[in-house]
Design a protein around this nucleic acid. Structure first.
Lengths: 105, 105
DNA sequence: TCGTTATATTAGAATACTACGATATAAGAA
DNA sequence: TTCTTATATCGTAGTATTCTAATATAACGA
């Protein structure tokens, strides 16, 4: 009955990974993460300009990535730089995008 | 301006991977996928019993996995068996759950 | 201090997701 | 055919996401 590893109580074990994936599963956020894999460090207005989206939209996506632990921040003066913070995420994104090593394709 | 690889038109390139992740980012669906990695093939009522959830709930999650291309089906008599259909998904789940090779932990 | 720039937060409407009972379909047995 | 089992779909209430303008905060310079 449980070699499928499906015990009800176990469902809790899947909450955290599911939340991580959920934070990543939006085209804008995926794009941001991919960009950070290439650029290593980036401030908000630069992303905003590249993405051509309202500032609050970009910022809200960044907060979502941050509270999932996917990125972290580093203030320098007026700017806040975002940096990837979870190695697993890079591996996942590489799987999705075919592992080419961060040059322009 | 675009070494971040953030051109607006490019956002479309992220839709498909984002949808794949979205289909995966729910604890029940993650649990099902993980179970299928171990058991290879499984019918609905078995999953339903293990998960202890209403039949329609399980079925709906399965349809979501199926329409994302994550699983495929194979009917045998009254039963419908579900099988993983996307290798990338297994890699992603292994990253999330620490890569132990499908024995009971 | 005041002004300016960069970023974060709030508010609220539109949209999407989730759970689950009720119902429908599909396949085999009698 | 009718009955039964296994699975899928529908209806819908509750909940969560998403977008964006408006507003708030944080840091710097004058």
């Amino acid at each position: 009955m449980t070699d499928f590893a499906f015990a009800d109580s176990d469902l809790q074990k899947f909450e955290e990974p599911a939340n991580l994936l959920k934070a990543l599963s939006h085209p804008i956020r995926l794009c941001i993460v991919r960009g950070l894999m290439r650029k290593k460090k980036c401030n908000v207005s630069y992303m905003q300009e590249c993405l051509d989206l309202p500032q609050s939209t970009v910022s809200q996506h960044l907060q979502k990535l941050r509270s999932a632990g996917i990125v972290t921040t580093e203030r320098s003066g007026l700017e806040v730089n975002y940096i990837l913070a979870d190695r697993r995420i890079e591996d996942i994104v590489n799987i999705l995008f075919g592992e080419e090593d961060c040059r322009d394709e």
